Simulated assay, not measured.
Amino acid sequence: MNDTADVAPAVRSILAAARDRDGGSERLSVDARSLPHAFAAAESEGRIPVIAEVKPTSPTTEGTREDDPVELARQMVDGGAAALSVLTEPDHFGGSAENLRKIREAVDVPVLRKDFVVREDQLDVVESDVILLIARFVDDLSGLLEAAEARDFQALVEVHDGEELSEAIEAGASIIGVNNRDLAKLEVDLATFESVAPAVPEDVTLIAESGVTTPKDARRMRDAGADGLLVGSAIMDGDVQMNTEKFVNAETNE
C-alpha cells in the first residue's frame, strides 16, 4: 500500500529512516516459537494473552526507560506475559537488534520484532519468532509476507481500517493486529478495533494494539474479539511485573 501522504510528521521521519536503514547481509532461517500456541497456553491457564512490549521510548511517550531490557523482559514473563515485543528501531524508539538477541536468549516465550520493515533484506537483521509488517507502509505486502514466511518467521500484519484488513487477508495473513492509533493524527480510539474486528476471519489470530491502558480497556478489547493484546506504555510505566499481572488477570479480577 505504502500510503504515507497524510501520516504525522513524526511517522514520516521514522519511515524515511527505515528506508535508509541497511538490511542483513545473510538470509536468515529461524526456528520460531509459536505465537498462537503461546496464546492458547495462556488461555488454558486463565490468563489474557498479552504481548508485553519492551519499549525504551517512543515519539508518543515522555522520557526514556534506561533499565536493563533483559531484566525488564524477564519481569514481564514472570508477570504472565504470553509473548514479548521488542523494539529494534534505533532512531526514534531507542531499540536495537542486540537487545532483541539478548532478550530472546533469556526468555522462553515468542518474541516479536517491532520495527518498520519495508524491504526483504531488512528481514535478515536479527532472528525473532514474529516479525511486524505494517500494511500501510509496505509496497508489496503479499511478497514481503511470503519472504518472511519463507524464513519461517511468523508475520504479524498490522492494519488500521477495513481497506488494509482486506489487503492483509488477500495477502494470506494468519496473524493480524488492529492498531487503534491513527498514524495520521497519532490519536488513539479503541472503537477502531471494534469497527474492524467483525470482518476478520475466525481462523486468524487477532491482536488489539495501542490504547490498552487499563484492565477495563483489556476487557473491552477481549469482548470485541481480540485473541490477544499488545500492551506497551501501560506496562513500561512503573513496575513492569505488577503491571503485566494487572493486564493478564483483567478478566478474573474485574
Score class of each variant (00 low, 15 high):
Q154A: 00
G95H: 08
P90R: 07
H160C: 03
L141W: 10
Q154L: 00
D121P: 12
G143R: 11
R101K: 14
E98P: 05
P110I: 08
I131S: 08
D124Y: 13
F116P: 01
V107Q: 03
K102H: 11
E158S: 11
V111G: 02
L123M: 09
F93A: 14
A148F: 07
A147H: 02
V159N: 11
S128V: 00
E146F: 02
D91Y: 08
E98N: 10
P110W: 14
A155V: 00
V159F: 12
F93T: 12
A106D: 12
A150L: 06
Q122N: 11
V117N: 02
A150N: 10
A150H: 04
E149P: 00
F116N: 04
V107G: 03
Q122L: 07
F137V: 13
A147T: 01
E158G: 14
E163C: 03
F153S: 05
S96T: 08
G162E: 13
V126I: 15
E98G: 13
L156Q: 06
I134W: 07
D121M: 08
V130L: 11
E146D: 07
E98K: 15
G95S: 08
F137G: 06
E146H: 07
D139K: 15
L132T: 10
A148E: 02
V130D: 00
P90V: 06
K102D: 15
G162C: 05
A135L: 13
D124E: 13
D91P: 02
